[in-house]
Measured scan of single mutants.
Amino acid sequence: MTEYKLVVVGAGGVGKSALTIQLIQNHFVDEYDPTIEDSYRKQVVIDGETCLLDILDTAGQEEYSAMRDQYMRTGEGFLCVFAINNTKSFEDIHHYREQIKRVKDSEDVPMVLVGNKCDLPSRTVDTKQAQDLARSYGIPFIETSAKTRQGVDDAFYTLVREIRKHKEKMSKDGKKKKKKSKTKCVIM
């Protein structure tokens, strides 16, 4: 069974824990209790493949930012979460993405942009803004509501699919490099 290491990042209060708990335990946590770091595991079937999701729910508070490099190193894919009623959390996505790329030393890291709290009427981040940002990053965008469960499975499952595509691409690139290195030079 394939294991996928997913990391949920975003500013404090955007609903990272609520999304994760909704996926794992099928219930909505409405009281806000700032996370330092929590880890969850769940076995699911995605596109006919049974897999184990190892999900790291991270601290959004700035005082825990020193811990970010460590979990970013171990993560295979990242859910970059903002709240649709919090423009600052949307603007912060850029910083999370840049930090992930720096730590992973790669421009090509599996990510999904997630606009959470889409059940709320007080939207300050337009869907088109988020779609445009995701398009500019070359990553999928999904709106979710941890409260109603809308888009929750889709967000995590899409990230797994992005990781699969990335692994497939990397193995193809690896095979191309191996083929090239088999060419021999004969000096007579």
Score class of each variant (00 low, 15 high):
residue 131 Q to Y: 04
residue 130 A to G: 08
residue 157 Y to C: 14
residue 157 Y to S: 15
residue 178 K to S: 14
residue 184 K to L: 00
residue 154 D to M: 08
residue 139 I to P: 03
residue 145 S to W: 05
residue 166 H to I: 06
residue 126 D to S: 08
residue 173 D to V: 02
residue 149 R to E: 11
residue 132 D to V: 05
residue 141 F to H: 02
residue 129 Q to C: 04
residue 167 K to S: 07
residue 154 D to C: 05
residue 134 A to F: 10
residue 181 S to E: 13
residue 126 D to Y: 09
residue 159 L to W: 00
residue 165 K to L: 04
residue 160 V to H: 02
residue 156 F to Q: 00
residue 188 M to C: 06
residue 130 A to S: 06
residue 160 V to L: 07
residue 138 G to C: 01
residue 162 E to G: 03
residue 149 R to G: 09
residue 135 R to T: 05
residue 156 F to H: 00
residue 155 A to K: 00
residue 133 L to P: 03
residue 178 K to Y: 09
residue 130 A to I: 15
residue 167 K to P: 01
residue 156 F to Y: 07
residue 135 R to S: 11
residue 164 R to N: 11
residue 165 K to G: 08
residue 145 S to Y: 03
residue 127 T to Y: 09
residue 152 V to Q: 13
residue 165 K to N: 11
residue 175 K to Y: 14
residue 126 D to Q: 06
residue 130 A to K: 02
residue 166 H to V: 06
residue 135 R to W: 03
residue 153 D to Q: 14
residue 174 G to S: 14
residue 128 K to C: 11
residue 150 Q to R: 08
residue 126 D to M: 07
residue 131 Q to A: 13
residue 125 V to K: 04
residue 172 K to R: 05
residue 156 F to W: 10
residue 173 D to L: 07
residue 137 Y to L: 15
residue 159 L to H: 00
residue 151 G to E: 11
residue 127 T to H: 10
residue 135 R to C: 13
residue 139 I to S: 03
residue 155 A to P: 06
residue 155 A to V: 09
residue 146 A to S: 01
residue 186 V to M: 11
residue 158 T to Y: 08
residue 178 K to A: 15
residue 133 L to D: 04
residue 151 G to F: 02
residue 137 Y to M: 12
residue 183 T to G: 11
residue 139 I to D: 04
residue 129 Q to A: 15
residue 146 A to G: 09
residue 173 D to S: 02
residue 157 Y to G: 14
residue 142 I to R: 02
residue 152 V to D: 05
residue 159 L to P: 00
residue 152 V to P: 03
residue 188 M to V: 04
residue 169 K to I: 09
residue 159 L to Q: 00
residue 134 A to D: 05
residue 151 G to R: 04
residue 155 A to E: 00
residue 127 T to N: 11
residue 177 K to G: 13
residue 152 V to N: 13
residue 144 T to Y: 00
residue 135 R to K: 15
residue 153 D to H: 10
residue 137 Y to G: 07
residue 160 V to M: 05
residue 154 D to Y: 05
residue 136 S to P: 04
residue 169 K to G: 11
residue 127 T to W: 08
residue 153 D to Y: 10
residue 187 I to E: 15
residue 154 D to G: 06
residue 186 V to N: 15
residue 175 K to C: 12
residue 152 V to R: 05
residue 172 K to E: 15
residue 125 V to R: 14
residue 157 Y to P: 07
residue 129 Q to T: 09
residue 165 K to Y: 03
residue 152 V to C: 09
residue 137 Y to H: 11
residue 131 Q to K: 12
residue 153 D to M: 13
residue 164 R to S: 13
residue 127 T to E: 10
residue 178 K to G: 13
residue 129 Q to N: 13
residue 177 K to M: 14
residue 127 T to A: 11
residue 165 K to D: 04
residue 155 A to W: 00
residue 153 D to P: 08
residue 133 L to M: 12
residue 170 M to E: 15
residue 162 E to P: 00
residue 136 S to L: 11
residue 128 K to Q: 12
residue 150 Q to A: 04
residue 130 A to R: 03
residue 158 T to V: 02
residue 136 S to Q: 14
residue 178 K to E: 14
residue 125 V to W: 10
residue 158 T to A: 13
residue 177 K to A: 09
residue 154 D to S: 09
residue 166 H to P: 01
residue 136 S to M: 10
residue 154 D to K: 09
residue 167 K to N: 12
residue 151 G to W: 13
residue 137 Y to C: 14
residue 155 A to N: 00
residue 153 D to E: 13
residue 151 G to K: 13
residue 157 Y to D: 10
residue 156 F to V: 07
residue 187 I to K: 15
residue 186 V to P: 15
residue 160 V to Y: 04
residue 127 T to I: 10
residue 129 Q to V: 15
residue 131 Q to M: 12
residue 137 Y to R: 04
residue 175 K to S: 13
residue 155 A to I: 13
residue 136 S to T: 03
residue 188 M to F: 03
residue 133 L to G: 04
residue 137 Y to E: 14
residue 183 T to Y: 01
residue 158 T to G: 03
residue 156 F to K: 00
residue 131 Q to C: 09
